Amino acid sequence: ETFPLDVLVNTAAEDLPRGVDPSRKENFLSDEDFKAVFGMTRSAFANLPLWKQQNLKKEKGLF
């Protein structure tokens, strides 16, 4: 299941849709939104070091 970017960005855990893991908001973006937000594919993002993934998520309001 995916959700629009505005539902996930800068949203407190208690305000997220049911079933969304607040530590993994990026997994609930569509592939198109994911690429638009991070400028890379999911596989490229997954290959980044964890610290870099976290920094990007913070920068984009998805942490």
Rank of each mutant, 00 (worst) to 15 (best):
E14Y: 01
G61V: 01
P49W: 01
L50F: 12
F38E: 00
S23H: 15
S30W: 01
Q54S: 10
R42T: 01
T11K: 11
P49Y: 01
R18G: 12
G19M: 11
Q54L: 13
F28L: 07
E14C: 13
Q54Y: 14
K57A: 05
L62E: 02
F34L: 01
L8N: 04
K58D: 06
D31R: 02
G19K: 08
T41I: 08
T11E: 06
L8D: 03
V9H: 05
F34Q: 00
R42G: 01
P4R: 02
T2E: 06
T41N: 11
Q53N: 00
P4H: 05
D21K: 04
G61M: 04
D31I: 06
W51R: 08
S43T: 14
P22R: 06
P22M: 05
V7D: 07
L29N: 01
G61W: 03
D31Y: 03
D33C: 06
L62I: 08
S23V: 09
K60Y: 08
N10H: 11
L29H: 01
N55H: 13
T11P: 06
N55Q: 15
N47E: 13
N27P: 03
F45H: 00
A44T: 10
L16V: 06
G19S: 11
D33T: 07
E59L: 12
R24H: 15
A44N: 09
E32Y: 10
P17T: 04
L48H: 01
L16F: 07
G39K: 09
G19P: 05
G39H: 10
T41H: 07
N47V: 11
K35T: 13
V7G: 04
P4E: 06
L5M: 09
V20A: 05
V9P: 03
E14F: 01
N27S: 09
K35R: 13
S30Q: 02
M40I: 07
K35V: 14
K52I: 13
D15M: 09
L8R: 03
T11Y: 07
L62D: 05
D15A: 10
S43Y: 13
P49S: 07
L50I: 12
D31C: 06
E59H: 07
L56W: 02
L62S: 02
E26D: 04
D33P: 00
A36V: 12
N27Y: 11
K57H: 01
L56A: 04
L48A: 01
E14G: 11
L56M: 11
E26F: 05
V20G: 04
F3N: 04
D31P: 08
D15I: 06
L8V: 04
L48S: 01
K60N: 11
F28K: 03
S30M: 03
N47D: 13
R24T: 07
